[in-house]
Design a protein around this nucleic acid. Sequence first.
RNA 1: UGCCUUAUGGUGUAACGGUAGCACAACAGAUUCUGAAUCUGUUUGUCAAGGUUCGAAUCCUUGUAAGGCAACCA
Length: 566
Amino acid sequence: MTAPKAPLPSDSPSSKDFIRDIVEDDLRSGKHAGVVTRFPPEPNGYLHIGHAKSICLNFGIAQEFGGRCHLRFDDTNPVKEEVEYVDSIQEDVRWLGFDWGDHLYYASDYFGQLHDWALQLIRDRKAYVCELSAEEMRLHRGTLTEPGKPSPWRERSVEENLDLFARMRAGEFPEGSKVLRAKIDMAHSNMNLRDPVLYRILHQSHHRTGDQWCIYPTYDFAHGQSDALEHITHSLCTLEFEVHRPLYEWFLANLPVPSRPRQIEFSRLSLTYTVMSKRKLLQLVKENHVEGWDDPRMPTISGYRRRGYTPESIRNFCSQIGITKFKGLTDVGVLEHCIREHLNAIAPRAMAVLDPLKVIIENYPEGQVEEMEIANHPSHPEAGTRNLPFCRELYIEREDFMEDPPKEFYRLGPGREVRLRGAYFLKCHSVIKGDSGKVVELRCTYDPETRGGNNPPDGRKVKATMHWVSARHAVPAEVRLYDRLFKVESPEAGDDDFLSLLNPDSLKILSDCQLEPALARAMPGDRFQFERLGYFSVDPKLSRPGSPVFNRTVSLKDSWAKVKGQ
RNA sequence: UGCCUUAUGGUGUAACGGUAGCACAACAGAUUCUGAAUCUGUUUGUCAAGGUUCGAAUCCUUGUAAGGCAACCA
């Protein structure tokens, strides 16, 4: 079974936003000849859907304006960073459909240059070695409403600073004993300008530079200069860096950098029913609340990939939500809409019964088997057809039968008739129950005049069409249903421990599902619509040849569930 | 009792001094061999008060609310 050659919905044209307006102005005015952006993840975790927003923005702008986008790892803190993350980030960006070409960089590539620039600031009397402890420094810094006090080490001589900084680098001092600070303004209303730290001592080996350094630059001292070294024109970041911008500009103004990038901030993505903080995602993984970074319930790129999302749907989502400075909360329903829209267009249909209820067709010949020809996609005839075996014993969805159905329920019940999709009309005559009173089997008859599911000559109509599989031919399989990971809309909002807000029913494993025979040959990553149920894809980790495990990517919209819920 | 930022239907966004539009959601109807999809229609909005202007969501003032900032994290 192959996916139909349905036209992919092309990414909807990115709507204009205030950042694209700025880029366009800068190009038109001649301020820049071309645009260069960058995506600068810290390799301390896996990428999530919020990063996808930034990736689509940065790579998207580069594409639209004929520029380029760099992938740069912001690896200035060896305590938290690992190569596993470096690798997963590259895989995820590529999977999303973006290409950085030759422009793969690391902030650690610039450690030498950054060190030279630190020396220059010392010589210019704009930086000094400070021996205050972290606690003392905090006390000296003042508060939001009171100015800070200068460090007692603030007025050291250039020679002494040079000597001390060299010995910091040489490894003569323990961690935390000394830092290099910029000399700016201890009374500034922006705390970031109250003599920020430029370098700290970390006796820690780095995933790229090994033990070459034991002093490491801070984010503030590395980021803007890295941008400048790469001739980034527009440095796009999230809102929490807004207060860092004056510092970003201070370094560019006080150092002989080769270019002058501009930092512009936008709002990060928040999604209902999920957490986006890397710290919390890491905790979910480390404490085994999920099966890993790529657990299909995780809002990570790898989680969505494993769950069956397409890169197109995620890109489309990112362009739908837009870019602003307003800190909102996006309904996860928008993401779900995007994946339904794409999968509806491309996913071949299949029959699967998740909670089987046996049906015996009493007037169907005992030994007979028919091949019923069914379309692979209702709106794409070019996707072809397949044959499904039909016989006297079937499975239908338990949920599609009610012994005492209300008026609004128009599926099967005693004395009721329905259509089996692509097969025959089926009428229920009696119900067989087990010892506990549970319905275990239905006795039905079929109408031979409705072959292929067509209306009979007498003009009889039915309200419902249901999915089914042949009990003699179906293959058993495991199917995993996922629900939102958290019970509440904004698990990050209150003071509650977010773990207490986890949805205990976020994963449901169904081990007794019955699938149409061809599904046994489905390959990892294959996506289908199980008719009337939702979109499902073959789990790449849990499946074995000939026995796939299916993940539910997203359910179909279900207006019966609404009626039922009232 | 600091500085900075933001505010448009239920949600996310557009309108760059000139008809408040789009998407999701919701609701109604049509259609349907998926209670899906598709089609048609409907409901709901410029935080507040002043000011500038022929004209303000847009500019100005004041207020209100929300968010960010006091790591040797990014």
